[in-house]
């Protein structure tokens, strides 16, 4: 009887914890979305107003006063380009690291990801300028590949490591070259991992601010860099800023909702593999 009671209480406490954490994590997102539908005066009102007359004025201003569609297309080009590069180079890299069991390249890619991004900016800017690439999408795609590739490698490593070695060896004995082992045997077995890696790479690239801020021009500016236009020295257009932030957050949010089940499985695979 008492154990049933304590189990019920434990369940309630669990739920309470989840609700508290959920409120803590979701409050800024809810505030952002609500603020995007408020008049400018309501956005900065103190105490914050929960009841207000919703307006789409901020969205209208965003679309009418800025080349928002161009920014969105730029974002898609840069994100899809860098995610593709990350997959094209990251998948074989993860496979070879797993195959050879030489781990330093994986550590190196992680180190490259861990150092402050600002460290890369000046050398890259000079390099891309000397190559005449500033103004094109390439500096943005290539710089974002530094974000996407480590993600792809580190997500896929446990997937490749999880394939029994003897399956690779059986394929070799059957007549496969290393490339063919990857293409015909390993890749079909890590399909869900590739999907997870692609989605996470997409989200990280989509949201990455620093590189596009410095390496983009007015023609290649992405949504996230364009959002900075609404932050002024004297005044900030909070309503429009929240509208653009909401639109920026939408694609990753939708992707995360679609694949949330795989996402959790994919992120914890290395941990539960033993």
């Amino acid at each position: 009887m008492s154990s049933t009671l304590s189990a019920a209480w434990a369940r309630r406490l669990n739920t309470l914890q989840l609700v508290l954490v959920g409120i803590f994590l979701l409050a800024p997102v809810v505030w952002m979305v609500l603020a995007s539908f408020k008049q400018s005066s309501d956005v900065i009102a103190y105490p914050p107003t929960l009841l207000f007359t919703p307006t789409i004025e901020n969205y209208r201003a965003l679309i009418e006063t800025t080349p928002f569609l161009s920014y969105a297309i730029n974002s898609i080009i840069v994100t899809v380009g860098s995610t593709t590069l990350g997959i094209v180079f990251g998948v074989p890299a993860a496979f070879v690291i797993s195959w050879t069991r030489v781990s330093w390249p994986a550590v190196l890619t992680l180190a490259a990801r861990m150092v402050p991004g600002a460290l890369f900016l000046l050398p890259w800017y000079i390099l891309f300028r000397n190559l005449g690439m500033i103004g094109s999408y390439w500096p943005l795609i290539l710089s974002h590949a530094v974000i996407t590739m480590p993600i792809v490698i580190w997500i896929l490593l446990p997937y490749f490591d999880g394939i029994p070695r003897s399956i690779y060896e059986a394929a070799q004995v059957d007549g496969c070259s290393v490339t063919r082992v990857l293409w015909r045997i390993a890749l079909p077995l890590v399909g869900s991992g590739v999907a997870i890696a692609a989605i996470l790479a997409f989200v990280f690239s989509w949201n990455f601010f620093l590189f596009v801020l410095v390496l983009s021009t007015s023609d290649t500016k992405t949504m996230i860099a364009a959002s900075f236009n609404f932050v002024g020295e004297g005044s900030t257009r909070w309503g429009v800023l929240m509208a653009v932030a909401t639109l920026i957050a939408l694609p990753p949010l939708m992707l995360a909702m679609v694949v949330q089940r795989w996402l959790v499985a994919g992120l914890t695979l290395g941990a539960v593999k033993g």
Binding site: S166, A171, I185
Partner: peptide, 20 residues
């Protein structure tokens, strides 16, 4: 000569069948 070109067949302890 790599395994692929030795024209030998091998049966593994865990069978190593291609699961897909």
């Amino acid at each position: 000569l790599p395994a692929a070109r030795r024209n030998i067949a091998m049966v593994f302890q865990d069978y190593a069948l291609y699961p897909h």
